[in-house]
Design a protein around this nucleic acid. Structure first.
Length: 583
RNA sequence: CGGGGAGUAGCGCAGCUUGGUUAGCGCGCAUGCUUUGGGAGCAUGAGGCCGCGGGUUCGAAUCCCGCCUCCCCGACCA
């Protein structure tokens, strides 16, 4: 492959586009890799298309390696498929819908579970046909409420989606493991720094769904990781370590104190520290009781739920919703307090709930024998030394308090800190949801139908391109890993002699050896411009044919390290081919 | 959907407060000469529905009213 800058459809920009905020957006636009066409919709220009194809190739190779079979389904999908699973209405505003001249409804595919399931049902029907893994790499469409960050979150994007079809749970687990391994190889080859986090709360069951997050400061997903181990998890999935229970004997009696005007944790702590109860109190010694109401799907009644967390922490609504899924969660309204006069706002204690037959769930840190300062269920009163297991007994444990930097890691090694990432891959055990909807069965050896179980696995191919740039750039431009770079070598001819002719000749010789080459053969362009463009474009290796040519000397540059080396003209092709081959 | 900002040449912007000749600057583009190791110089050019519609005015990029679009933060989504 030989690209000539004199004719390449490329115009680099000296300034950042006004609408670009994140590095990947700025650099991909300035480098002429992409151009914005509409909000969240981008055109891939020749260099960008090459990068996209390189990523695609890596994905394709690794999918084929695990036995995946590539096919290509339409992006334009008729309504009927989505009626079967109810997703036609479920999707709401988040998909593009189109109507044909006859008035028939379609949508532009956001994902393809329905189509794949239906397709398999039409072709395969024997247990001998399974398992099977099918995948495609194509454009997906989602009408994002707010596309942002350029390529990172668009409304049209490239995605590899694959689907596994197995006869039983063991088979599904195997297909899932194969995909997970393939994803590790893919992202390793692409040179990405990433973590694998559980995408679900522990209650929903371990490895049924995991996300691959590329670590970047600009990512929109937050997760936590440990300073002392490889532990990483979504905030929703963090399980707080449970401290050992303490003996209840010998603990002082619970005593109610008059605590005027202390409806908040802060005022309460201040009060006790001025009240001389014989010890210094912190917010962590108090038990904050947060009241929410929940409603199970299909129910019309709300249930009031009390949640006890250490007073120095808030309830994390995301963790709460994940823990209570699929129930709906809402904060209590004034009317709820009026209907339940035993709930004294600002002074709620565990026993008001427990004694009135309302469920009370407590943080894992609230173990037997722990002593708490908490509401006494009457205005302006709190109770001190209320002992868990002696004075109150929660109905259960709920792990929904906010996770903070410095919290101990659940695996016991190190402490947690929050990081940001971009979701680049997702592996998910779907189970039989779609197989049930389409009645996808295989006839077993016993002559009886067996319901198929499925997995779905995605990689955001275009997003991966942006994620790579986010992780691999400097103030001058992009630094492509060789596997995804649009070329291996950027041969730059600069000077008023025969440098450009020599550069082109070297480029042709390298091309003949199978090296992918971009040659800067533009005439009348100053060296500074060419060097700057080379750094912006980010091809891993540059070969400068310039002022040293008269002495038979060329310069080899490494984009990532910035190292420069003078090499002889005679052996340059040999040398560069070796560098490209990783020698 | 809530909050903030912006629409002027392919790109980045000024001009608007205080209406007044032919709407300006940088980059890019074209032509010529010079220049050639770090975003060159000089000269000459091409390129505009000043977002759209209405209004005020002798006169509107500029003032008024309405609308549309885009960007950023949040919510939502994943």
């Amino acid at each position: 492959m030989l690209l000539r800058m004199s004719t390449l459809f490329l115009r680099t920009l000296r300034e950042d586009p006004a609408d670009a905020e994140v590095p990947s957006h700025k650099l991909l636009a300035r480098g002429g890799y992409v151009r914005r066409t509409a909000p969240g919709v981008y055109s891939w220009l020749p260099l960008g298309k090459l990068v996209l194809e390189n990523v695609t190739s890596v994905v394709r190779e690794e999918m084929n390696r695990i036995g995946g079979q590539e096919l290509l389904l339409p992006a334009l999908l008729p309504r009927e498929y989505f009626e079967t699973t109810g997703r036609w209405t479920e999707y709401g505003d988040s998909v593009f819908r189109v109507v044909d001249r006859k008035g028939a409804d379609y949508l532009l595919g956001p994902t393809h579970e329905e189509l794949f399931t239906h397709l398999v049902k039409g072709e395969f029907s024997s247990y001998k046909d399974f398992p099977v893994v099918l995948y495609q790499i194509q454009e997906k469409f989602r009408d994002e409420a707010r596309p942002r960050a350029g390529i990172l979150r668009g409304r049209e994007f490239h995605m590899k989606d694959s689907y596994s079809f197995d006869l039983d749970d063991e088979g599904l687990q195997h297909s899932y493991d194969l995909h997970r391994d393939a994803y590790v190889r893919i992202f390793d080859r692409l040179g990405l720094r990433y973590v694998i986090v559980s995408a679900m709360s522990g209650a929903m069951g371990g490895s049924a769904s995991e996300e691959f997050l590329a670590e970047t400061s600009t990512g929109e997903d937050t997760f936590v990781r440990s300073t002392g181990s490889g532990y990483a998890a979504n905030v929703e999935a963090v399980r707080v370590p449970v401290p050992p229970a303490l003996p209840t004997e010998g603990a002082p009696e619970a005593r109610v104190h008059h605590t005027p005007d202390t409806p908040t944790i802060e005022t309460l702590v201040d009060f006790f520290n001025g009240a001389g109860i014989g010890r210094t109190v912190t917010a962590a010694d108090t038990l904050k009781n947060v009241l929410v109401k929940i409603r199970q799907p299909g129910d019309s009644e709300w249930e009031i739920l009390g949640i006890g967390v250490p007073g120095d922490r808030d309830v994390d609504m995301k963790r709460l919703e994940a823990a209570l899924e699929p129930a709906e969660v809402a904060m209590l309204e004034e009317a709820d307090f009026e209907a339940n006069p035993f709930l004294v706002k600002g002074y709620v204690g565990p026993n008001a709930l427990i004694h009135n037959k309302l469920r009370y769930l407590a943080d894992p840190r609230v173990v037997e024998g722990t002593r708490w300062i908490t509401g006494a269920d009457q205005a302006d009163h709190h109770v001190v030394d209320l002992v868990c297991g002696r004075d109150f007994a929660p109905d259960g444990v709920i792990d929904v308090a906010e996770v903070r930097d410095g919290d101990p890691s659940p695996d016991g090694q190190g402490t947690l800190y929050t990081a940001r990432g971009i979701e680049i891959g997702h592996v998910f055990q779907l189970g039989r949801k779609y197989a049930d909807a389409y009645e996808l069965d295989a006839l077993g050896p016993d002559g009886k139908p067996k319901r198929i179980t499925m997995g779905s696995y995605g990689i955001g191919v275009s997003r991966v391109v942006a994620a790579i740039v986010e992780q691999s750039h400097d103030d001058k431009g992009i630094v492509w890993p060789r596997e995804v770079a649009p070329a291996d070598v950027h041969v730059v001819g600069t000077g008023k002699g025969e440098q450009i002719e020599v550069a082109v000749r070297i480029a042709e010789e390298l091309t003949a050896r199978g090296v992918r080459v971009l040659v800067d053969d533009r005439k009348g362009v100053s060296p500074g411009v060419k060097f700057t463009d080379a750094e912006l474009l980010g091809i891993p290796t540059s070969l400068i044919v310039g002022k040293g040519l008269d002495q038979g000397v060329l310069e080899l540059r490494d984009r990532a390290s910035g190292e420069r080396e003078e090499i002889a003209l005679d052996t340059a092709v040999e040398k560069v081919a070796g560098v490209v081959a990783g020698e």
